[in-house]
Design a protein around this nucleic acid. Structure first.
Lengths: 163, 163
DNA sequence: TATTGTTATACTCTATAACTATA
DNA sequence: TATAGTTATAGAGTATAACAATA
């Protein structure tokens, strides 16, 4: 396949309202994924800002993980999230400063911290979960339930194939 | 729907190989999108590193855009990419330092820059495009062509619903 | 020796605000 | 006045390397 450079349109210079030629980009899965992700992230942020809350998708995922798995270590969380252990430190610092989560010394292994939500963190997570459900309903509002299920399956197939 | 906190499993402390309980996360579109994106991004990076090239998905998209739309201004590119004009500056700086792209003064509007690929940039983009096609084939390798087409459509519906 | 968490450091992406040149 | 591009600055996310405490 060729890049087809010759068929480029005329000079569009600056603030033209007309659509740009995106070439092969619209046929790329990676590009569609990035654009969808970006729009979904914007809706997530807007949902929380509108409710006077401040949580990122990553923080929400972390809170759910710690809530469901008592006494998780930082390494275990980092592995589950696919990030470096050093990356996790400032994220936990912030959550801890906000009183949502605590690092306890593990009684069985002095090197690790047993992570746990505080009572405040548990209540906050319940509020966040409601907001996430509203957000999810909005981003899936253009899809039937069958399509939503299908999309989840296809995304998982892509994820596995990309590992 | 409830959060179903009671049914959480036993203490998993640290480096347990066993899978964690991710609660409601696997049913969330936003979460599936983030995880797929992350894996796809990792494959993109690995593909370029293996070929001795260094381009991010964002840089590739920018290069395609400038290639297909001669004389585009920075504002037009920023709008098309959905980023602030100030965010674009260091990205263009890097591409220009690498000799792939130039900022020319627009003859018609002294405030704007007409962006264009250099001959080197055009050749580089051709190489990058081949790598992207290989990368795309890999991430879509778990899908039939019908599924790939379907996934593109569903992602676009999600993007539009999230705006 | 190996692992966990932390710190120091660095790079990218993102933004807002203020500045300049031009319209 | 308004717009385009730049700079200064700041915050979040990502990483690597080195260190202390513990195993």
């Amino acid at each position: 396949m060729k890049t087809d450079r010759k068929s480029a349109p005329q000079d569009l210079a600056n603030g033209s309202t007309q659509d740009l030629d995106r070439g092969l980009l619209p046929s790329l899965l990676g590009y569609a994924l990035r654009r969808a992700q970006s729009a979904v992230f914007a809706d997530f942020s807007a949902t929380f800002v509108a409710a006077g809350e401040a949580v990122t998708p990553g923080e929400f995922g972390l809170l759910v993980l710690v809530d469901r798995n008592a006494g998780l270590s930082q390494m275990a969380v980092a592995r589950a999230l696919g990030i470096d252990r050093s990356t996790l430190v400032p994220i936990l610092d912030r959550l801890q400063e906000r009183g949502l989560l605590v690092r306890r010394r593990s009684p069985t292994d002095g090197r690790t911290h047993a992570l746990a939500l505080t009572p405040l963190g548990i209540k906050a997570l319940a509020r966040f979960t409601k907001l996430v459900r509203a957000h999810e309903a909005r981003i899936a509002s253009g899809l039937s339930t069958a399509e939503t299920r299908m999309l989840l399956e296809l995304l998982e197939k892509v994820r596995v194939a990309s590992l």
